[in-house]
Amino acid sequence: MGNSGNILVIDDEVQIRRLLAITLSADGYKISEASTGKEGLALAASLQPTLIILDLGLPDADGLDILKKLREWYEKPIIILSVRNSEEDIIKALDNGANDYLTKPFRTGELLARIRVSIRQSQGIKDNPVLEFGSLTIDIVNHIVRKNKEMIKLTSTEFSLLSLLAKNEGRVLTHQYILKEVWGMGYIEQSQYLRVFIAQLRKKLEDDPARPRMLNTESGIGYRFSYI
């Protein structure tokens, strides 16, 4: 399958672990399992996995605390896989360093896609001066965006927003994070700016702005740039 890497699954539900083990190893990954937070931390330290899949409801600790502890030293992607589906929980996890968030029940296809994107992203696309997504190219250094070879005129704010999302391809960025990065700390509550600019970008970049393919809305949470 061409996938390689070592994935650590920290989840107390044996059935989920079994499902993940079957699905992920069929896809070419090597799987290690931990059923508690403590065990998970130990395995993460000793195995140095390529990616961690973390459940939030663990028997011995809150997954969010495990996430924070992992993030003290672990820099590779962490995907949260949890039954907690409130926007609040999701935003909290993303703000504390999770790369992605999936709620149970989940579709394995989607999980695999997210894993792929996360791993690819962690392997250093962000240093690339020119990002390519099919017919779309973004020249980070020269602030030039082309679609189907045609130059697209973007304002500087539009460009900052697009490049932030594109550099984090596949990853959900929360509203607050984007506002802080693009507009600055003072605009953290001004989410309507974000909506307006996303709408503008969609008009300029998407084939059908009403059915965006790249600039995706994660309802109540943020946006995700995806390219499949």
Binding site: H175, S191, L194, R195, A199, T217, S219
Partner: peptide, 16 residues
């Protein structure tokens, strides 16, 4: 209620 600014086009898209 956790209201936030929303573009209803997003809503429609999500539905589809």
């Amino acid at each position: 209620l956790r209201p936030n600014w929303c573009d209803v086009r997003d809503l429609a898209h999500r539905m589809s």
